[in-house]
Simulated assay, not measured.
Amino acid sequence: MLSLVATDLDGTLLRSDGTVGARTVAALEALDERGVLVVFVTGRPVRWMEALWQHVGAHGLAICSNGGVVYDVEAGAVRSYRTIPVEIGLDVVERLRAGIPGTTFAVERTTGFAKEPAYVERHRLPPGAPVGPMSEVFDDHTVKLLARHDELDAEAFWQRAQEIVGDVVTTTWSSTGAMVEISAFGVTKAATLALLAEEQGVGPDDAVAFGDMPNDLPMLEWAGTSYAMAGAHPSVLELAEHVAPGNDEDGVARVLERLFDL
Results as ranks from 00 to 15, higher is better:
G99R: 09
F185R: 15
V41Y: 03
F138L: 15
T188I: 04
F210H: 03
S3L: 05
V180D: 06
E116N: 09
E257R: 10
F260I: 01
S16C: 02
A98I: 03
G251M: 03
A197V: 08
M213V: 13
S3E: 13
A51P: 07
P214G: 06
L2Q: 05
H59N: 13
A6H: 04
V107A: 12
A228F: 12
G99W: 12
F185T: 02
E74F: 00
A51C: 01
V165F: 10
S235C: 05
V255E: 04
A58F: 00
S175D: 12
P133S: 10
V39T: 09
V236C: 03
S174T: 15
L193P: 02
A230N: 08
V70E: 13
V93G: 08
S226L: 11
D261A: 14
D212K: 03
T24Q: 07
R122I: 13
P204G: 05
E74Y: 00
T110E: 11
H233C: 08
W222N: 00
E116W: 10
R109L: 03
R82A: 12
P101T: 13
T192M: 10
K189A: 09
G68M: 08
N66Q: 11
E121L: 14
L237N: 06
G57M: 07
W158R: 10
G89Q: 08
A230Q: 15
V5F: 02
E221G: 01
R258K: 14
A253C: 05
T110G: 05
G186H: 07
G177Q: 11
V236W: 08
A244Q: 01
V137R: 09
G112W: 08
I63D: 10
R47D: 02
P234K: 11
R15L: 01
W158N: 14
V25F: 00
W53F: 15
W158K: 02
V73H: 08
A244W: 04
L220M: 07
F40E: 01
L14C: 12
L256M: 04
F113Q: 07
Y81V: 00
L96A: 11
G76P: 07
V169P: 10
A240Y: 09
V73N: 05
A197P: 04
D139N: 15
V236S: 09
D248A: 09
D32R: 04
V252H: 03
D139V: 08
S3M: 07
M134D: 11
R79S: 15
T176G: 15
A62C: 14
F157S: 05
W158V: 00
A197E: 09
E94S: 13
E33V: 11
S183I: 01
S65M: 04
A26H: 14
Q159W: 12
R124A: 14
S135R: 15
V202S: 03
M213F: 06
E181G: 03
I84P: 07
E221I: 02
A129T: 07
D10T: 10
R254G: 07
G224Q: 10
N247Q: 08
C64I: 05
V202R: 14
P130D: 09
L220P: 03
D91S: 14
S175I: 06
V165K: 10
E29I: 01
F40W: 05
V143A: 11
A191W: 13
V69T: 14
V165N: 12
E181F: 07
H233V: 02
M179E: 15
A190S: 13
P214R: 06
V187S: 04
G67W: 12
G76C: 05
D139H: 14
S226C: 11
Y81D: 10
V165Y: 07
M179L: 15
V208W: 09
G201K: 01
R160G: 00
P85A: 09
